[in-house]
Design a protein around this nucleic acid. Sequence first.
DNA 1: ATCTGAACATACTATTTGGTCTGTTATGGG
DNA 2: CCCATAACAGACCAAATAGTATGTTCAGAT
Lengths: 222, 222
Amino acid sequence: MCAMSRKGQQTKEKILTTARDLVMQKGFAGTSIDDILKGGPYSKGQFFHHFGSKADLATELVKWHAGRDIEMFRTTLAQAETRSDDPLAQMMLFLKMFERYISNENEPSLGCMYAVYTYESMQFDPSIRDFVADTLRDWTAIYVRKFQEILECYEPARPVTARQLAEMIVSIIEGALVLQRAYGNVTMTARQSAHFRDYLELLFGTDGKTNSGEEKRLGTAA
Amino acid sequence: MCAMSRKGQQTKEKILTTARDLVMQKGFAGTSIDDILKGGPYSKGQFFHHFGSKADLATELVKWHAGRDIEMFRTTLAQAETRSDDPLAQMMLFLKMFERYISNENEPSLGCMYAVYTYESMQFDPSIRDFVADTLRDWTAIYVRKFQEILECYEPARPVTARQLAEMIVSIIEGALVLQRAYGNVTMTARQSAHFRDYLELLFGTDGKTNSGEEKRLGTAA
DNA sequence: ATCTGAACATACTATTTGGTCTGTTATGGG
DNA sequence: CCCATAACAGACCAAATAGTATGTTCAGAT
C-alpha cells in the first residue's frame, strides 16, 4: 500500500548521495551507472528499481539537490534575520555565515551542481534545463527581495537596482566556485563574498547612508 | 620532411573547431568521437591520424583554445592601451570592448571552456587540470598587473589589493557566463561587467581620486 | 616523373554502457 | 501467520564507444 518503505527511501537517498559525489567530480555524462553501483556498492536491480533510467536519475538528482540546497539557503537567511532588524546587517551576516560554511566544505563537493548541469546542458532534455534556470532564478529572487529592503532603508552611493546587486552576488559566487575548484583552493569563494561585502559597505556605508534602517522602512510603509 | 602539410593542419583545425562546438554544448564526456565525426563529416582515420586518443584530443583542444583565447585577450588589452595613458581608463575601455564582444556571441559558444574542463576535471589527468588552472592564473595575472598600475595612480575609497580586484572580475565573468548559459541570455555577462565598472568608478572615482594618472606614476618611478 | 610519407577511408574489434529479464528476499498491513 | 508487493540480486543483451588494422590516395621534395 505505502508507495515506498523506510528502507527503500533510505537506499534511494544513499544512491543519490553517491551519484551526487561522483557527478560533482566527473560530470554527469562522465559518470556511468556502473560507477555509481561500484561507489555503493549497490546492485543493478537496486538502481533500476529506484530510477527508471539514467535520464530519470538526472532529473531526480537535481531536484533532490535543489530541495536541500534552497532549504538550507532559506534557513540560513532566516537565522540571519532573527539576529538583526536591519536588512543590510542581515545581508552581511548571511554572507558571513555562507562564507564560514563554504570554506569548511570538507567533502568533494567543490562547486555548484547547477553549473555542472548547465555546462552539460545540451544532453539533458529542456525540462531539466528549465528547472536549473528556474532554481537559479529562485536563488536570485531571494537576494533581490533582501536588496529591495536594503534600498528602502539606505541611499546607495551610486544608482543601483536590487536585481543588479542580486545577480552580481550570484555571479560572483558561481564564478568563485569555478576558480575554487580549478585551483583546489577552498578559501576562494569566501574571499570573493567578503570582497562583495566590502563593496556593499562602500555603496551603503556610513558616509553614503542617509536613513537608519527602521525609519525609512516604516516611513515607506505608512 | 615537413611535420605537417597545409591540408593536414587545416583538417586538424576543422576537427578542433567541431570538437570545441560540441564540447561546449554537451561537455567533454558527453561528446563521443563519432559525434565529432558526424559533425564534419570526417572519417575515423582522419581523426586518429591527427589525435592519438580522445584524451589526446582533450589536451590539444584546451591548449589550442587557450592559445587563441589569451592572444585575443592580450590584443584587446593592447588596443585599449593605445587609446589612453591612464590605466583606469584603459581598464574601463577594455571591459567595454569585452562587453561588446561577448554580447555579439552568435555561435553556440555560450560559456567558458575552462569551466567545462573544471567541472569534469576528475576524468582528465592532472596535467590538464594544472594547465587549466595555470591558464586561469595567467588570465588573472594580466588583470593584476593592470590594477597594480591603477593603484599606483589612484587612491581607492577602501583598502583593496590588485589581486582582490583581479580575482573579482574573473569570478564575475566566470559566474556570469554560467548564468548567461543557464538563462540563454546573451546580455548577462556584459551587464555584470558593466556593474563591475560601476564599482571601479565608485572605488577610484572622482571623489576618491587623489592623484591624476601620470603624476603619481612618475612620482613613484622617480 | 617518381617515390616517400602524410593524409585519408573503412571494415573490424574489444569493452563499456544503459537497460532488461527472471528470479529471490524482505517488509508490513490485514 | 499470510501474502501482496516493495526491495533487491545478478545474469544477460543490444547498442554505443574508443580504438585498430589494413589498405588507398595524394602532396610535395628530389
